[in-house]
Structure formats: structure tokens, C-alpha cells
């Protein structure tokens, strides 16, 4: 990947709504060139989606989320991939990672209620072939996600005017 794509990604990562014109000014590059770069990043599957970071606690939507650690016996041919696929097809599953350490897969799951999430684990997840154990931790509070701190933003402590 070239230097320009890194710079473009940096800017979009901080704010994916940054107008094309601003990106072009900030990087001192022609906006047609930037547009082509972004297009390419999308086509190549580098940029998959643009999504807001939402603080759901400030909305009236109620749901529960959990981090689920999953132990599996890997299959001979496909390793962990097939099992991961079987897991990520469920709508409750937000993220799946293969991880090092005491267990193999880490899942982020959500459901409208505690009961539904528990049922997902016991009736859908645990019964998947080769899943040998799960451990569920419910998320109680979100402090920081995707680099965004969820508490009240710290105010600018600088004096309004300084030399």
C-alpha cells in the first residue's frame, strides 16, 4: 500500500465524514486523485464499511451484550475457519476473533434481553460441532471503543488566549 493510502485511511479513521475537498487540502493532493484512492480502497476491500460509533446508553434502546470465550477442537482440514463461519452466521454475533491464549475464539454477541442471549449461548453456540466449552461475560459498562472514550469528553483546559 502506498503512503497516500495510509494518509487517507488515517484521516477517514478519525472522521469518515471528512469531505473529499478537505482531505485533498489537508494532504495537498488533487481531489480527483484522492477520490480514486478512496475508490480503490473500497474496491480492494480495505474499507469495508463506514459506521458511526454510537453510545447506546444515551438512547432508549435496551439490549445486552456479552464477550464469549469459546474453546473448540480444530478440524483437520479447515482449522478454525469453518467453525468460525458457523458461528458468525448468527445475527446475535457482532464480532468473531481467533485468538491466542487459554481459549480459541472470542465472540462479541448481543440480544434484546439477558434471557435471549443466554439462550443463544446454550442452544445455538454450545451445540455447534467441535465447540467444547464457552464462558460468557456480560458487558456492564463501556469506557472506550474504537479509540473513542465514552465518558463526558474532557474539556479543553487551555486558556482562551495565550501568547
Amino acid at each position: 500500500m502506498n503512503n497516500l493510502s495510509h494518509k487517507v485511511l488515517d484521516i477517514l479513521k478519525a472522521d469518515c465524514r471528512t469531505p473529499l475537498e478537505d482531505i485533498s487540502v489537508m494532504l495537498g493532493e488533487d481531489s480527483v486523485k484522492i477520490a480514486a484512492e478512496i475508490d480503490k480502497l473500497q474496491k480492494d476491500g480495505v474499507i469495508l464499511k463506514y459506521m458511526p460509533v454510537i453510545n447506546w446508553d444515551k438512547t432508549d434502546r435496551q439490549f445486552v451484550e456479552a464477550i464469549i470465550e469459546v474453546k473448540v477442537t480444530p478440524q483437520k482440514e479447515e482449522g478454525f475457519d469453518t467453525i468460525a463461519k458457523n458461528i458468525y452466521q448468527y445475527e446475535e454475533v457482532r464480532s468473531v476473533f481467533l485468538v491466542s491464549g487459554m481459549y480459541d475464539l472470542l465472540i462479541l454477541a448481543e440480544a434484546p434481553t439477558l434471557k435471549e442471549l443466554a439462550l443463544f449461548v446454550s442452544e445455538k453456540l454450545s451445540v455447534i460441532d467441535f465447540v467444547t466449552a464457552t464462558s460468557t461475560s456480560f458487558i456492564l459498562k463501556r469506557y472506550k471503543q474504537d479509540g473513542v472514550i465514552f465518558e463526558i469528553p474532557t474539556r479543553d483546559r487551555r486558556l482562551l488566549v495565550s501568547p
Binding site: 479543553d156 487551555r158 486558556l159 482562551l160 488566549v161 495565550s162 501568547p163
Partner: peptide, 24 residues
């Protein structure tokens, strides 16, 4: 010459300062 602006700015709501001489 900066003092005066500091005093006025403090009284104004929603003020945006481009008058700060330090990193953000």
C-alpha cells in the same frame, strides 16, 4: 495586547478560539 481579548472572550458563550499559543 492579548490580555484585553482574554477578558472579553471569557464573557462570550460559544466562543471559538484561534488565539491559543499552545498544542491541543
Amino acid at each position: 495586547g492579548i490580555r484585553k481579548f482574554f477578558n472579553i472572550a471569557q464573557e462570550i458563550p460559544n466562543v471559538i478560539s484561534l488565539g491559543i499559543g499552545e498544542p491541543d
